[in-house]
Amino acid sequence: MAYAYLFKYIIIGDTGVGKSCLLLQFTDKRFQPVHDLTIGVEFGARMITIDGKQIKLQIWDTAGQESFRSITRSYYRGAAGALLVYDITRRDTFNHLTTWLEDARQHSNSNMVIMLIGNKSDLESRREVKKEEGEAFAREHGLIFMETSAKTASNVEEAFINTAKEIYEKIQEGVFDINNEANGIKIGPQHAATNSSLAGGQGGQQAGGGCC
């Protein structure tokens, strides 16, 4: 299917916080209680619609263990959005957010939109991190924030889509240089054909492959 834009996302956060489960819920609408361990990186893709435009999300789901940081760092390059995930039932995953954020800010482009996600909101009885703490952290660091549950699918769509909306707005405001692929955005064939004004007259650029 043709798309107007392609956004690269990266999902980061401590191991076991539910990164792969969030992705699976978003792309396949299902939940796997015992998910395989992610080693290195895995991928997902889905088409969404924003403002009547088809946007393809290309999602990089990374390994969370500290040892793999040096590998993960190379995957920030060219990401337009990042989902930074912690587990509301494990305080240490919240405590590590600062180092994750430092990493993300240092190795990505400065316009990358970061969504902070407190996952496992279905496990209210085991909660160790208050929602207000997540909100405060997000406010302090200029992130968008949401609590999600990959298990019940609560807020999962919203988390991925709101991030895309924010990126889309930045494009509209001209913050992102969409002709520089290092920003994690590619113009799709659909866009180049139908709306060349936004492509700044250089819309001949084609993304690799126009199907989902």
């Binding site: 991928f43 997902g44 893709a45 290309q58 690799g208």
Partner: peptide
């Protein structure tokens, strides 16, 4: 016959 994302998905799964 695949593009980036399909190759990446295929080979990691």
């Amino acid at each position: 016959h695949m593009d980036f994302i399909h190759i990446a998905q295929f080979l990691t799964r």
